[in-house]
Every structure is written in C-alpha cells, then in structure tokens.
Write a protein that binds this DNA or RNA. Sequence first.
RNA 1: GGGCGCGUAGCUCAGUUGGUUAGAGCGCCUGCUUCACACGCAGGAGGUCACAGGUUCGAGUCCUGUCGCGCCCACCA
Length: 866
Amino acid sequence: MQIEKVYEPQRFEPHWAQWWIDSGVFHASAKPHPRVFSLVIPPPNVTGSLHIGHMLEHAEIDVTIRWHRMRGDNTLWLPGTDHAGIATQMVVERKLAEEGLDRRTMGRDKFIERVWEWKAQYGDQIKRQMIRLGASCDWSRERFTLDPGLSRAVREVFVRLYEKGLIYRGEYMVNWCPRCQTALSDLEVKNIETQGHLWHIRYPVSDSAAAHVIVATTRPETMLGDTAVAVNAKDPRYTHLHDRTVELPLMNRPIPVILDDLADPQFGTGAVKVTPAHDPNDFEAGKRHDLPRIRVIDENGRMTAAAGPYAGLDRFEARKRVVEDLERLGLLEKVEPYTLAIGRCDRCKAIVEPLISTQWFVRTKPLAEKAIAVVETGRIQFIPENWTKTYFEWMYNIRDWCISRQLWWGHRIPAWHCQECGEIIVAREAPSNCARCGSSQLLQDPDVLDTWFSSGLWPFSTLGWPDQTEDLKLFYPTSLLITGFDILFFWVARMIMLGCEFMGEIPFRQVYIHGLVRDAERQKMSKTRGNTIDPLVVTEKYGTDAVRMALLLGAAPGTDIVLSEDRMESTRAFANKIWNAARLLFVNMERSGVEPWLPNRLETFRPEAGPSIEVAIEDRWIFSRMNTCAEQVNRAIEQYRYHEAAQLLWHFFWHEFCDWYLELKKPCFQENSGLNADWRNVLAAFETALRLLHPAMPFLTEELWQRLKDNAPRPVSIALAEYPQYRRDHVDHAAEREIEELQKIVLEKRNARIALNLPPKATFYSPLAPEQEAVGQRWSDTIRRLSGAIIVGDMPAPDAPVPMTEADRRRLTKQKEQLEKNITNSRRQLSDETFLSRAPEHVVASMRAKLTEYEAELAKIITALE
RNA sequence: GGGCGCGUAGCUCAGUUGGUUAGAGCGCCUGCUUCACACGCAGGAGGUCACAGGUUCGAGUCCUGUCGCGCCCACCA
C-alpha cells in the first residue's frame, strides 16, 4: 500500500465531499424518531461568497450535527440562502453600472430578471463552497427566502398580522437612505461618532428691534424648514418670549416660540429650533403643538422648492451656503467644534436623512411580550448566558418596525391600492376587484418587505408552513441555533417573536452565540483592511480539517476567535500526525502480512471477552484512556465548549495515542505475525480514535476509516458510525496505574541521560528506586528502548556511581525548594481545624495523599544530593 | 448616558460551580535525519494572573474601587 509521507488534503477532500452528497449520508429521515436534533442554517446572503466567519459558524454547526448524527439521532441541518434585499440589489446595480446600465431605465421586471441570474450564479457558489468545506447539510431540503413556498408563508404572515391590527400603514418619520433610495429600520442605521460643529444662530425676535434668541444646531440647513423655536416653560431666561414669535432668518418668516420639554435648559442656550419635517424629536414636538411640516430636503438629499433660494442644492452644499449667508448677515453667533453621532446606512454608509413618508410598520410590543416571556421562563436559553441581558434590554425598549422598503428585489407587499376610491386591500392572492367600490383598477403596492421579515419566519417557513407538513411536525421547534451576535436583534429576536406568534411555540430551544473571527493582530477582518482570510484559499493550502481544527481550538464560548497562519500550520501538523500514525500501521501491516482488517470492536480488548484473546496491558490502558477522553469530549460538545473538545482530542491523539501507545506497540509489529491479538487491538483502538475525531476532522478520518476493511457489516460512512461513549466498565485503573508508573520511570531515565550529557542513542546504567522495581523489571526492555537506560537488574551495576552534573544539581535543588514550600503549605493547611471541618472530604484526602508524595520525593532528592 | 466584556508566559489565548505545584499552541534555547511523521522526536527557559483593598481556612476565580482597552444600545439640539 502506497502512502505518502505528507497528508495531501486536496487529493481526498473534494472526493469525499461529493461522495457524501451522492450517497445521501446526511439526509434526515421524515419518520418520527425518539431523538430528533434539528437546526436551520443562518442563511448566508446570496450576494457573495462565504467568508471565514461563515466557516467558523459552519464548523461549529457541523461538529454538533455530526456528533448528534453519530449518536444515532434523527438529525437535520437545513441549508439555504437569504435574498438579502438591499445588499443584493446594491451589488447588482453596481454590476449594471459597469455595463453602463441603470435599473430605472431597465424597468422593474427586467432588473429582477438580472438579479435572479445573479442569484443562480452565487447561490450555487455558496452551495459548492459549503459542500467542499464538509458541511453535512441535508441538501434535499435546501431553501431560499424567495422560494414559492416561503413567499406564501410571507404573505400569510403579513395578512394575518394585518388582520390582527399588528401591521399598519402610516405617515411617520423614518430613516431614509438617499443613496439606496429606501426607508430603513432603526437597526439598519449605525450611529457613528463624528467630529462636527455646533452652530449658534441668532433668530431676531419679532417687533423688537434689538432682541434675539440664540439657537444651536448641528444641521444649519434644516433651519429653512423651521416652524418654531422651543424653550422650556420652567426656564426663567425666556419668560419674556412666551407667546411671542421670532423671525426665521434667510426665509423671513415669523415662527412661534413654543413651550416644550424638548428644550433642555441645561443644554446650549436652552432654546432650540424646531424642524418637524427633518428631525424625529422635532416631529414629535410638532405633533404636540400642531406645527406645520415644511419639507426642505427631498429623497435624493437635495433641497426642495420650499427651501427658496437654496432649492436644488445638495444638502451639504446648502449647509455651506446657509452658514455663509448667516455670517454675512451677522446672525452667526459662534461655531463650536462638536462631537455628534451621525446615522449612516448600514449597507452603503451614506448619511441617513430623517424624512416623513408613508410606510408599513409592525406593532412590535404585543409580539415582544411573548418573546420576553419565553426567555424569562428559560424555554429559550442563550449560550453564553450574558446575551440574555442584551436581548431583554432591546426587547423592553423595542420600537415599531418599519418593514417596507422602496426596493425591487424582495417580497412584494401583498397590498393593493384601488385607483378609483383609494381603498387598500391586503390579501394573500391578488384580488380582481376593489372590496369597497368594485373597481378592477387595482395596483399592487410597489414596495417590498424588509429582508428580515422573511428571515424571521425561517425556522418554520423552511419546513413547509403554513401547511402542516410532516417535517414541520417532526423538526419544529428546532433544537439549536448557532449564530453571531451581530444579528441578535435583526434576526434572532424576530424569529422568536414571529415563531411564538405563528407557531404558538418557540423556534429553537437554545441559541449559541459565537464570536468574531479576528486576524493574528486581533483585528476585525474586513475587505477594506485587506486582512480577510478566504476559506477556499486556506483550505487549499492547509486542508479543510486543519482550518476547522484551528477555528475550533479558538472557539471558546463568549470570546473572539483569533486565526492566523501559525495556527493553521500547527493544526495541519496535527492532521499530518494522524496521517502518519495511519502510515505506521499500514506499512507494518504489510510487513506483518495483515490485511487491514477491522475487528469487531469490544471483544478484542475486553478482559471479559475470554482467555482466548490476549489483552496486553497497554491495550487496556489506551482503551481506558480513550474512554476518559470520550467522556470529556462528549461533555464538551454537549456544552458547546468546542475549544475544549478540540484540545482534548489533540492531546489524546498526539500525546497519548502516538507518543505512548504506538511506541509501546512497536515491538508487536513483527514480520509475518499475521492478524494476532496485538494487531486486532491496535486496529480497534485506531478505528475508535478515528470515530472520536470525526466530527472535528471529517475528511481525513473518512479517508482512513474507509481504508480499514471490516469483517462485519458497518455503515457506509464513518459519519454514520457510532460515536464513542463513556462506559463505566471500560475504566481500568490497574492498567492506568501501571502505565503511569512506566511513564514516570522512562521520563526519569531520559532526564538522567540528559543530565549525564549523553547523546540519545547512548545506553547507560541507571538504578531503579525500590518501589519501582516491580514495574521496572517487567518493562525493562521497553524502558531501555524509550529512554536508553539499562536498569539495574538487567545488567550488573556500574562500579562507580554516575557522577552528578552541575545542571542536574541545580535542577534538583530547585525541585527541593519547591517541594519544601509545598510541604510547609500542606502541613499548615492540614493542621488547620477550620480547614478540616469546612473543606470537602476529597480535597482533604487528596491533600494528604499529595503531602505523602511530596515527602517521599523530598527524601529521594535529599539522598541524591548527598 | 445605559448595558456587556476584556486585562494571565515574548505573542495569541484557555482556566466549568473558589481547593493544594496556573495550562495549550506558536515563538525562543539545547540535543537528535532513531527504518510513521523535521508538518518530526527528546529536553529546557519563561508568569508578583493590570493595580489597590475586602470576604474566606484557602482567591487567577467572589465583592468594592482605580487605571487601561474593546463592543453594543440611546432623539439631548
């Protein structure tokens, strides 16, 4: 059998990725099963290819899913993608611009056609990437948020919410992105601290030549739309202005002075200009005082006709001109530098303009109540727990959700406007006549829904809702959601609200929130920084398994994940280590004339299996150790402690299986030995180790597992094999104690050799402590092989004792000091009445045991030093 | 302004309900091409757990405060 020295992932991974899909290994059963584990993917945007953050998410999901599948659960990982309204439309528009095209000249239908073409191309790319990265999804259940079925669910939800009065349409102030030409929800606006100015402007008081009031603003251009100046009723400085009017400069329009709490006497001059059409606070104040709303900025961010001489100017140009003009008129009191939070569009970073427009909204308070309750009662659990607080924080202060977008790509709002009487008809399917006047002149609302409206239904719309499908019955509520904190409000919160409302049941039981992937310098990865890691590039270079392992090793709950080439190099080394352990076995099997035959598992190493099968102590030891490892790994995965699971696997395989077990087994690999008990045990141990490693490193383990032949029927894939579980009867304390003692002796002898300055190959005589003799004699050959030391009993003792080197003496002295300190500490603790009465028994017991150990060791060191 | 989190070896981070000598990977130093693996083997150096108090028999872990850093939310012009 030809096996290369170095594991080449590129040769095997694509092959297995395809085979898994073709053989349907990952398909969930539609039949009820006592244990069901289901999870829906956070659907990636169709806009682009997957980045390393997706790979982390998918690695974590995949480990969990594979683990459940191997435990025999009926397991579903439902894949799919999101149409991502604004993001996708933006990308396609940009693409069209390169061709010199514009969506407005193309027309809606033509444009949507182009987006679908884009989707076909990129949606496929995402699927290909995921398959290549080993994601064990059930591709037969793949969904897209704009699929007919999911669109039906969207219309159903919209209509029901509307009928329940939870969706309304109205004229309100919304965040408007002048670049994207659409309204945005509050969540889609990012407030970014920016260095700006605070302009203090004098507004002359009407009929009072000298008097004026000074207002401060960060946006002077909006003064053109001012319809009042507000002062606080309790502010003694402005009592003379009550019931007066001021002259609005530049526009020469009298505006009233109103009394409103909007004006904070502590801030600025205590007087504030009111622009009801362009500021959310002013909008509210305007409603309270019935002020006119003068719109001076339009959807393009340009000044309207109402802005008089400034009409047609860009809003920022207008600001400059307004300030210049005020200065010329001597109405500019002063300008101060000022730090303010500017709202920017989450997608295109354009400065958002608050505008009054007619939009559709969801009344969120009633939905939030249920969503709060299910988390409060612990029916939904966040991991790590502290996200619960963030979730509540947002839910308690939730505001109505603007769901209409002036885009073309997305779910068209299922509302029709009657051209005759203006009636609005909300319906599941297009109505033919107006419900009020009977006219057939109906036009569908041009707007589409916020992307998150459809993703909010994802856990049940993907399973067939509103139909009561088998899948829905079986897999809803889903077991777990694994996602990032950046979409906690956007997505997770809305799924909980909508799931509780429409299914009457939570969408998932647990939410695991993973961290952000950062680069070696702990920086956030972003395209502008140019520090992104492309999953395909690094998997090509290091192998999928290595990259997965690197991600998992860093994936401690609640922390960000640092990924660097260094890390992937070390995990690649680990993959190679597994490969070479297999190589050792395969090469020796050939020499021994052993067909790579996989024995039935347990009978080979269990002492109870009968006297006919020899079970060497190292076999008993490795199975006992592997049992412990399985226990810990299972518990770690169960608690989403992926980094711990990965580290346990690493340590077990490298430092126990390879460093000790295989080394101990080497003498058994004899020429033409045939398939003896030793071989059976080695192969059984190796096969079990592969299964243990499989969720973390699926490709390598599948490749090696398939190369092991079997004498008994087994699943077609290691992905369907049984995951090793802890078994009480596999614990073998006697074997562990003996091998531990052996390890201690070998390490001691190795150190002795180094202290003597002997080269690795040199053998030397070394005495054995009396208590080690029983073990030492039995393992003398092994000790000699692994340490180079010939122990007393093997050979006559040397005439002169081995002289101690300086380095050795230093080391021992240091050890001695440390031990003395520990002994003092332990003795003090053990003579402390309070400690003895309060500390748990096992702590006291272990401290006693350790103390004895320290004392013995100290005695040895003292004699050695003399 | 409110909320969350971080500060542990040169670097990047683990450290589950407090329990005795604080761990890993990388890097560094020493010695080895030993017939699975130099993506390797054997060994080693390196930490007053940010700082100051407190609770406790016992604190990296719990409490208070200080300093430094990050993230999220929020309409103070």
